[in-house]
């Protein structure tokens, strides 16, 4: 397993992602550049957080039209693992690889704190290692309010494609536990195949005790379970 951490101009969680994968999880990972057109030699894609292209036009809009996205689409189609975190989630939505959109937080504030998440889906390759208890993962975003129309929401629910919901420490869904006003308390969703995961919280910031927690490992360790 070798993971491509894609760098766009303005990515700023790319080094965190690479460090987390390599040093905390022992997974082979290297950077890929947004203008690359060939990801052969890689088995999975990590779209990191940041402010790709300065968030110009809309978050993730320009990045989602970058040359490397053709390869990311191929990975998605072939059932390979693809994860987009924060700005990476926005890129996946803008690219049409995941439904819906991410809008400005209801509070109009950038929110940087640790939240609790409850896993929804239990069968996706990304979700098999995630425990039933709430997990603790940091968020840092100004535009993380997930939104989609009612038909899409119903499809996500019926097809078991909600990966994570914001909850409190005891696993209860409360207005206070939802940091941005996301519909249905959604923090992350999956594509139809379950191999593409988009989420606003940062699992790569929670893979080491030294940095405050290791619950992120329960998600990212999925990559070590996948054989090339």
């Amino acid at each position: 397993m070798r993971v491509a951490v894609v760098r766009f101009p303005g990515s700023n969680c790319d080094q965190d992602a690479l460090h987390s994968l390599r040093d905390d999880l022992g997974i082979a990972a290297d950077y890929a550049w947004h203008e690359d057109r060939d990801l052969s030699g890689f088995d999975a894609v990590f779209l990191p957080g940041g402010f790709s292209y300065g968030d110009y036009l809309r978050c993730g809009a320009i990045a989602s039209r970058a040359p490397i996205l053709d390869e990311v689409r191929r990975f998605a189609r072939e059932g390979r693992p693809v994860i987009g975190v924060c700005n990476g989630f926005q890129v996946l939505c803008e690219a049409g690889l995941l439904p819906g959109a991410l809008m400005r937080n209801l509070s109009e504030k950038f929110v940087c704190k640790t939240v609790w998440l409850q896993a929804g889906n239990r069968t996706s390759l990304w979700m098999r290692g995630v425990p039933d208890r709430p997990i603790s993962i940091p968020i840092a975003h100004g535009e993380g309010r997930y939104l989609c129309d009612q038909d899409t929401l119903k499809r996500l629910q019926d097809d078991d494609r909600v990966a994570f919901r914001y909850v409190d420490r005891e696993g209860r869904r409360t207005p206070e536990a939802n940091p941005n006003g996301s519909i249905d308390d959604i923090a992350g969703i999956l594509n139809e195949g379950g191999n593409v995961l988009g989420m606003m919280p940062h699992p790569e910031r929670a893979t080491s005790e030294l940095l405050g927690g290791t619950d992120g490992r329960t998600i990212l360790s999925a990559l070590s379970a996948v054989r090339a």
Binding site: A61, A101, L147
Partner: peptide
């Protein structure tokens, strides 16, 4: 349709 607007929102 391709870039300037996001038809979802």
């Amino acid at each position: 349709d391709k870039l300037l607007a996001n038809p979802v929102i």
